[in-house]
Design a protein around this nucleic acid. Structure first.
Lengths: 341, 341
DNA sequence: CTGAAAGCGCTAACAA
DNA sequence: TTGTTAGCGCTTTCAG
């Protein structure tokens, strides 16, 4: 048989080096003892010569862990996900783990299937990004007790760890900053009834206004969505509100960007005529003119921290608490005090 | 022993269903025969009841493939990679494969390590994105004959499939469009001596000028880099050239954006005073005002196509040719005919 | 220090 | 239609 196209096995290495597979195994796994320095050197030479590389799947069979972390995210195309993924990947890699990704691109129906595959491949744990952890998913994971941590989302009332920014206070702080700048007539480009980011941010907006004794005008809360391309659909509603307000709080930087675009095309000066505050602090906020004021969310750090938490669960076995990471209001060029007319 | 925290095995399912493991295996693998409809139903019930899910690592041991594709990319944080990754991931998923990613964030030194891990995990094939496939890597992969396809890069003179845009003619076409608009004094913000994207694009720029009988002024070719943040370092050189030219061809959209930024901050009107042409056609080119003219590169499609090629190699075994995908010059608002002074 | 051998969970002949 | 069984490549007792 043609054996040249098959990877050499530990058995072949053992035979070729005239030792047992056990000894080879000890050596490639760096066990402190079980062989002399001499045999070690010899075996290593043989390994190198044969181009042997251990089959980690076989190892998995006996050690019962894969060294693979599963990542589930809704979008790959947004400008949000890559940063989180970056944090995850670097932390995983740093700890000798790899990352299996799968994204649903808003196709929630498939999430369950992907979850199944991840389990079938026996990932050591799962990082669940941004979307709502449906009861169905929760049950699946719990039943098989697969370690899981949520990123940028949170299932209330469940002992499932998460790493996120506390959106409501964050949004409140942002709007507060607008108020402190002197704005009193502030509209919001909101994210609708999305439970993870939409509602809390709108609530934060209301909180801030309430603190300042300003009653919320419902027609100033315009549901748009989260993406740049969602904004045009709201142009009419925006146009109706624009003359009455001095600032807009946007549910995401992408929306803020879409609105900035609108302003620039309609001769509305920013921040002269209207101030804009975004949310996320994506890299592109500093690539436009004027640069976008925003609420900073440590995306990469979230990925890092969540991965550390997951790794901790794998070692320790204990389920950690959820963590709120610090947000920060970053005032740049798109906000200013309202001009007194 | 506490067995509740272990996943049930096929053997346990078999026993519980009073059939052999072979029968269970046939059923979960959907073999057309080997069991009655009745036993199938019964077994499926048991599987569901026990919450059994097959261990794909064990299956890998015997079938000798993992259903996992490895992706190696240099950046996760750029706006370029996510789109390619998207194309890869969706195509893989569509074909029942998963994607193991690893990125080096410019840390080339680790590429070899990651390559090793991917092999140890026995990925069925590798997608190698954007960076130069060093001889070292090539040898590693060839020796173990791991199917590999390059994306947006190409190792000349080697029968290693690739999917990319042919940068030189693409750049030439872009500059040609500038020339046809009437521009004669065109500078380039270049990518240096990078062999995969830097040099070819600069050559394309030269080609176009040459065609129009214009001699290249070397001081108008300004090496910048590929990222937005590389641009400020070239401000001085840009300033020196700016008054003399009517258009800039930029090696990437990020650089184009950085330059647009410069113009907006220095009162240089675009495209009134100077036209800007980018390269890549990233989503953000349409998010700024003025929208950026650019050379379209089908990033997502590249990911898709490359994955198809790789999948084909896995089935057919034959090594396909490399493919150049069509580029397209997209003229938007950042370019116009030069104003006659 | 070293090796023999028993599995890890699954598939795929081969028999029955 | 079924079941038996021999591995897949590796780790890990357990003896020697």
């Amino acid at each position: 048989v043609d054996i040249s196209h098959r990877n050499p096995t530990i058995k072949e290495v053992a035979k070729s080096a005239s030792v047992s597979t056990a000894t080879v195994s000890r050596i490639i796994n760096g066990l402190p003892s079980g062989y002399t320095a001499e045999t070690k050197k010899h075996v290593l030479t043989v390994i190198d010569k044969m181009g042997y590389s251990p089959n980690l799947n076989a190892r998995t069979m006996v050690t019962r862990h894969t060294g693979t972390l599963g990542v589930m995210l809704p979008y790959l195309s947004s400008m949000f996900s890559p940063l989180v993924l970056w944090g995850i990947e670097e932390t995983a890699e740093m700890n000798g783990r790899n990352v299996l990704i799968s994204h649903t691109e808003a196709n929630g129906r498939l999430t369950m299937d992907y979850l199944k595959v991840m389990h079938e491949k026996r990932v050591d744990g799962i990082l669940f990004v941004s979307s709502f952890l449906l009861p169905e998913y929760k049950e699946f994971v719990k039943r098989r007790n697969i370690p899981l941590v949520q990123i940028s989302t949170e299932l209330r009332g469940e002992p499932i760890p998460f790493v996120r920014v506390n959106d409501r206070p964050a949004a409140r702080d942002g709007v507060r900053a607008l108020l402190e700048l002197g704005h009193r007539r502030i509209a919001m480009l909101a994210g609708g009834d999305d439970p993870v980011a939409g509602i809390p941010r709108t609530e934060g907006y209301r909180d801030a206004l309430r603190e300042f004794g300003i009653s919320v005008r419902e027609d100033w809360v315009i549901d748009v969505g989260f993406d740049f391309h969602d904004v045009p659909r709201a142009f009419d509603r925006i146009k109706a509100v624009l003359p009455q307000v001095t600032a807009f709080f946007c549910v995401s930087d992408e929306v803020a960007l879409g609105f900035l675009n609108y302003c620039q095309r309609h001769g509305v000066s920013v921040p002269g005529q209207v101030s804009i505050l975004g949310y996320d602090d994506l890299p592109m906020t500093t690539m436009v003119v004027p640069t976008l004021s925003t609420i900073h969310q440590p995306l990469r750090l979230m990925g890092q921290r969540a991965t550390q938490l997951l790794l901790g669960m794998l070692e320790g076995g204990r389920v950690p608490e959820g963590e709120y990471l610090a947000h920060r209001v970053v005032l740049r060029e798109s906000t200013a005090s309202p001009s007194q007319e």
